[in-house]
């Protein structure tokens, strides 16, 4: 109850701050819930994953570098197979509307169907959002939060991360 009141109070004070990640915001705005699926990995689960990884020998040279995992707080993946194109545009608009909160990683041309946006705080990326529309018109949004520093971005972009 105390926690609820605390959040209530916080919510009152900063009504315009998001307090949530892009994926959550996007899902709020989706009226047709059946179309979109959102998979969530919370910070608690992220910790459990770390525990499992650090104790397992199998993952040494395959799979995700531990460093990347250690810097992540949460992960959300949104997928939509039907109406993907419309939803992709919706996500674009939401991003555009909040260009003071998120900035694109690169100079994306109009009509680009694969874009990454970041939200930085003192040189580290707090939130990373990837909007992607596949050739089959499936929408995928990957939303990561954490302390994604320079090293993180380097590791992520330079290495080919293989999954088994």
């Amino acid at each position: 109850m105390k926690r609820a009141l605390c959040l209530l109070w916080t919510a009152c004070l900063i009504p315009h701050a998001w307090g949530q990640d892009f994926a959550a915001k996007f899902m709020e705005q989706c009226t047709k819930k059946g179309q979109v699926e959102c998979q969530t990995v919370s910070p608690k689960m992220m910790e459990k994953v770390m525990e499992t990884i650090t104790r397992s020998d199998e993952r040494e040279d395959t799979g995700i570098p531990e460093y990347l995992l250690s810097k992540l707080k949460s992960a959300r993946i949104i997928t939509a197979k039907k109406g993907g194109e419309k939803l992709f545009q919706k996500a674009e608009r939401l991003m555009e509307k909040n260009k003071n909160r998120f900035s694109p990683m690169a100079d994306y041309a109009a009509g680009e169907d694969n874009m990454i946006f970041v939200r930085k705080h003192n040189e580290t990326v707090q939130e990373l959002v990837m909007l992607s529309l596949s050739a089959e018109k499936t929408l995928t949004i990957v939303n990561l939060t954490g302390d994604m520093d320079e090293k993180f971005m380097r590791v992520l972009s330079s290495e080919k991360i293989k999954t088994d």
Binding site: R3, L7, G19, Q20, D21, A24, C38, Q39, T40, V41, S42, P43, K44, M45, M46, K48, V49, E51, T52, I53, G63, I64, L68, L69, L72, K73, S74, A75, I77, I116, L128, M130, S132, T140, V142, L144, T145, L156, S157, E159, K160, I161, K162, T163
Partner: peptide, 28 residues
Amino acid sequence: YNYETYQDSYNDPEMAYDQISNALQMVS
């Protein structure tokens, strides 16, 4: 971020790991 409201989609860290793996691969 209001992490308390995050509802895990997976109970099993192994499955969560797979998802994260996929996600990072796509971003990469």
